[in-house]
Amino acid sequence: MTGPGMAATDSASTEAIQAALAVEHAAIYVIGALGGRTSASSTPALARALEVAYADHVNAREALAVRVVAAGLEPVASSAVYDLPRRTGSAEGIGAAALRLERDTTATYLSLVPKATGTDRTLLIQLLCRAAARQLDLGAKPTAFPGT
């Protein structure tokens, strides 16, 4: 495809990447806040899962931002503040909130995948797979079709 049709496809693909980037900005903020409320000594497994998730989301943000810059656009900026989940006064509450976040992230990625093309789509599927895997670290059971 060439001409305006190709440009429209590219634009939709980059929009999907930008939407994923916005999700990662929010996830980094929320996971960081949840990690700050988690004791590494009394709940080491949860603390470790949140550490891994945080690093994963940062890596995803960088990979997505690079893709947007390569397309000649300005990466979407993060908000100054995001709503934090409620009922996070216990380790169970923190774990449940983190799992909800990862489930939402997985579902969002899955909704964005068909809108992207080429290597953008491949990147979104790779990040979708990572988000689905992180759910297991937070106590989820495997499913045949994560994100649906």
Partner: peptide, 16 residues
């Protein structure tokens, strides 16, 4: 596309 991507994620979950 959605089905295949989700199936890839399901496979990745089981591997993980």
């Amino acid at each position: 596309i959605t089905l295949l991507a989700s199936a890839a994620a399901g496979q990745q979950q089981l591997l993980h």
